[in-house]
Design a binder for these strands. Structure first.
Lengths: 250, 250
DNA sequence: CAGTGGTCTAGACCACGTA
DNA sequence: ACGTGGTCTAGACCACTGT
């Protein structure tokens, strides 16, 4: 720590829980640390520093460990991970365009299609729909520096009164945000399946790619908070620019 | 619940923590449930049933939620997820062969190469090695029903006295298990990057595939428990049979 | 209103690592 | 011997949901 004034106070009147405040403070300090020393955070230290009990301190450290900021070793201590985790939201749901923009990259998207259709047999079966049910289909092409990056097709089983416009969708950058603000439905779980295949004719045309050239396909089952399967998405990605990265801790 | 005798007792003398015992019992009951009713587990119910305090019950339910067995809604309750999670260990580290075998599938593997080599410049830089350092390279071809499924090349920076034989490796099905039992080093974190590409000449030959046909490539940085980068792995997978699947909860 | 999960307190005992 | 994180107890108050 290079001469930094450390925050030693928790705001007990804040609506933000104590453990979250502690988390934020620690993340800030990890970022500020010049990766030289090994500040070795301990529970005792934090309880004394903030005058709180162990529970919020433990919850903070637990979540930091889960998120890859620190690792904990019994009887040794809690240590910062060298490279702080970055989270390209490859597999988060929505918000890809916004993420690239935040990285200062030239990224935008265009809605290719927006309609209510009768789903294919496979999709109807997957979503367990009746014969007469229709789904909302949103087809979106995402560009990075003016070159196609990914083509996503999202199918949602929602009430007819959810009628987003193309403008709204391009504005919001994510159907899911719109779903949340308009219907109060949030998508909180995604079952992803990643595979590689050769671009078919349609995909090649949309992505301005060659037929048969390898593309990365991510298919996702979309679930609401109460774990109702509400939709499905297929994303076809140009592999040169689009890679999925993430971390698995054991 | 179809007339099942419920376990209502925790073994307080067991070395297994209470919350884990509770977790196991709940998982069993979720599996046994005929997916009809919605047993709605609550904290109060469990504390009364097992005569324990809230802490272990909360820890059990928290982990079950993290693992996708249940979801929790404030002021409403804790509810089972319809489809119980399955965990194909695509991205777990090692043990792929064992997994397929447990599924009753005909899966085996062959060691194609096992040697200590001077790493490429890229790899040396990635692992931050000195010019004279050597790494252990293990090349393994995995078959499913006698057809090539995946080709993995694992590079580990370990002391010279770790000298596994081909037999040991084919026996153990995973270098990582061997590492753990021989040197006490466990690999606990993997940073994965997934992409698609066309098979190059070498990959095509090894996998008995066509040059340029799409393959799924998973490159992984391997870390020990103290988050030391100890190795790197490149897995080239036949996409018809090998898909990566996993769940993201928010 | 009673019941739920979310947060917090102030203690306790333990296994394990370091010195 | 001492400090660490892991587990547990027995309370407490809160916001929110259902009736």
């Amino acid at each position: 720590m290079t001469r930094a004034t450390k925050k030693n106070r928790i705001d007990r009147n804040s609506p933000i829980p104590i453990y979250k405040q502690i988390k934020e403070i620690i993340i800030e300090e990890l970022k500020a640390a010049d990766s030289e020393g090994h500040p070795a955070i301990t529970e005792g230290e934090l309880t004394r520093r903030f005058h709180v009990s162990r529970a919020p301190v433990r919850q903070a450290l637990k979540e930091l460990a889960d998120e890859g900021y620190v690792y904990r070793e019994r009887a040794k201590g809690t240590f910062p991970v060298q490279e702080l985790p970055v989270h390209p939201p490859n597999l988060e749901l929505g918000g890809l365009v916004r993420y690239f923009r935040e990285q200062g990259m030239d990224c935008n998207s265009r809605i290719l299609g927006l309609e209510r259709i009768v789903p294919s047999d496979d999709l109807r079966e997957l979503l367990r729909l009746n014969r007469e049910d229709k789904v909302l289909r949103i087809s979106r092409l995402i560009y990075l520096t003016n070159r196609p990056l990914a083509w996503t097709q999202t199918y949602l089983f929602v009430t007819e009164d959810f009628q987003p416009t193309v403008d709204e969708l391009e504005e919001m950058q994510s159907v899911f945000l719109l779903l949340e603000s308009e219907l109060g439905i949030s998508i909180t779980r995604g079952d992803h399946q990643i595979s590689a295949s050769g671009a078919n004719e349609e995909e090649a045309e949309v992505l301005d790619f060659n037929i048969g050239d390898p593309v990365l396909v991510i298919e996702t089952k979309l679930y609401t908070r109460n774990n109702q399967l509400i939709g499905w998405r297929r994303a076809v990605n140009i592999p040169d620019d689009y890679k999925v990265s993430f971390t698995v801790n054991r």
